[in-house]
């Protein structure tokens, strides 16, 4: 529902039509407009160019532009749908849509699979999982001996890699996630349910009739 004065023309946000974006996602047009307010803040935090670069993404996540985080970097790469090193508004909305509480579980499972498919081979491979484990443990306070890491990987792949070919395919991942639903916890952002409340300034800027 448009909340502002309609001028009888469609307003484009970052060259994206909010009505079209809403039709492709779980968001309403008002919610897409609200997300544009957030996008403008993040995309202008370092360079005001209407695009989010990795530094701005990490800064928005951690309020600290120097923090190294492999997981955040991986999420950025998945948001960067066109592989240009930046996230435009369309990428931002379509990617955040995955994290909406109402988005089907299947979409969340697919995104989480890509998150762990580090080399984009179409499989979650043991070496990629170990690489993520080592990088993240190195960044955190949590310390584990290599022997313990190998044991955890053995146990994980024994359970997840049903055909024991050394890698996890999408069907095996779906099965594993269904037995370990906590893995999808990070794939839902309750904030997205109340996005128009969190960013009310769109009310004054809206020119879109829904």
């Amino acid at each position: 529902m448009g909340c502002g004065p309609s001028k009888g023309r469609r307003q484009y946000l970052g060259n994206e039509d909010p009505v079209f974006l809403a039709s492709q996602t779980t968001f309403s047009v008002s919610e897409v407009e609200a997300l544009f307010e957030l996008f403008k803040t993040i995309s202008s935090s370092v360079i005001d160019d209407g695009l989010i670069n990795k530094e701005e993404f990490v800064l928005a996540l951690f309020k600290n532009r120097t923090k190294e985080n492999l997981f955040a970097s991986r999420i950025f790469d998945l948001f960067d749908v066109k592989h240009r090193g930046v996230i435009d508004f369309g990428d931002f909305v379509r990617s955040l849509h995955i994290f909406h509480p109402n988005t089907p579980l299947e979409d969340k499972i697919g995104f989480s699979f890509k998150l762990y498919d580090l080399d984009n081979t179409g499989f979650i491979e043991r070496k990629g999982v170990k690489q993520m484990l080592l990088a993240l443990l190195g960044e955190s306070e949590m310390k584990l001996a290599d022997e313990a890491i190998e044991m955890i990987l053995d146990k994980t792949f024994l359970e997840a890699d049903i055909n024991q070919d050394g890698k996890i395919d999408m069907t095996e991942w779906q099965h594993f996630v269904s037995k370990n639903p906590s893995l999808l916890k990070i794939m839902t952002l309750p904030y997205l349910r109340d996005i128009t409340t969190a960013f009310p300034s769109f009310v004054f800027n809206s020119e879109v009739d829904e």
């Binding site: 307010e37 957030l38 803040t41 993040i42 928005a60 996540l61 951690f62 309020k63 985080n69 492999l70 997981f71 955040a72 999420i75 994290f99 762990y116 999982v129 170990k130 993520m132 484990l133 993240l136 443990l137 960044e139 955190s140 949590m142 584990l144 313990a148 955890i152 990987l153 146990k155 994980t156 359970e159 997840a160 370990n180 906590s182 893995l183 916890k185 990070i186 952002l189 309750p190 904030y191 969190a198 960013f199």
Partner: peptide
């Protein structure tokens, strides 16, 4: 340690996209 590798990755990353929404609105 009774966690699988992916639980540890999620936990140790401290990853939470809600950071995008905090202090930005």
């Amino acid at each position: 340690l009774n966690m699988n590798a992916f639980d540890i990755i999620s936990l140790s990353s401290g990853f939470d996209l809600s950071g995008l929404f905090e202090e930005n609105n």
